[in-house]
């Protein structure tokens, strides 16, 4: 649908009129609703991008969070990863508003540093890539904590971060496109299921 030549104000006025215009049912024309929706979408897309200032995590922790998000859902041949999808910012926003998340994630990042200092005498980000991978391969699976109980807090932290990273990724434009979801549109007919392969 072309939206050139119609201002946002025109659309909003149409919406207001149809809602108040004596119609018994407070419904608005579908086309107007769709138009308003597209406009909001375009405005958001046009907003200027500046470097993100973390709301909860320190700059150093945010860098660590970003690295972990990238490890959990990386870029691959098909699509971008969790960082491009804004997962670190999404996690930072929610964490800034929730004390439980602050403990689980803020404390979890500290745990990870402490663990690396014990193991490698370096913080997580100072570790070599293979040391970081070695650490993640341990805390990414519950079975490792069953063998070595000292890992259990790290496993719980990583399980939580994994879910939040997936949430951040698969609610983003690129994450939704990665799944090849088709929809969230209006249509006049419901054709049902395409022919099922035999």
């Amino acid at each position: 649908m072309a939206i050139t030549g119609i201002s946002r104000r025109d659309v909003l006025r149409t919406l207001a009129m149809s809602a108040a215009g004596g119609s018994v049912l407070q419904v608005i024309p579908l086309e107007a609703a769709e138009l308003a929706h597209q406009m909001v979408h375009k405005e958001r897309a046009a907003a200027p991008t500046t470097k993100y200032a973390p709301k909860y995590f320190s700059a150093r922790q945010f860098e660590m969070l970003t690295w972990l998000c990238d490890a959990i859902v990386p870029k691959d041949e098909k699509s971008g990863g969790a960082v491009e999808a804004g997962a670190p910012e999404f996690i930072d926003l929610l964490t800034s508003e929730n004390e439980k998340f602050q403990l689980a994630l803020g404390g979890g990042l500290m745990w990870l540093d402490n663990y690396c200092v014990d193991q490698y005498q370096k913080t997580f980000m100072e570790c070599a890539p293979e040391q970081r991978k070695e650490t993640l391969d341990l805390i990414a699976f519950r079975r490792n904590a069953r063998k070595d109980h000292s890992l259990s807090q790290g496993v719980a932290f990583f399980a939580f971060l994994r879910k939040m990273t997936c949430d951040g990724y698969y609610t983003s434009k690129i994450g939704i496109a990665d799944l090849e979801y088709i929809g969230n549109v209006t249509r006049s007919e419901w054709p049902g299921c395409p022919p099922l392969p035999e």
């Binding site: 490890a71 859902v73 691959d76 990414a140 699976f141 399980a159 994994r162 879910k163 939704i176 979801y181």
Partner: peptide
């Protein structure tokens, strides 16, 4: 339509990270 929590079960079942999770 994907949304928050959609892959919670997968994360619990599958664990791991990276390309295989994706």
């Amino acid at each position: 339509l994907p949304g928050v929590g959609m892959f919670d079960d997968l994360c619990d079942d599958e664990e791991g990270y990276g390309a295989s999770l994706k």
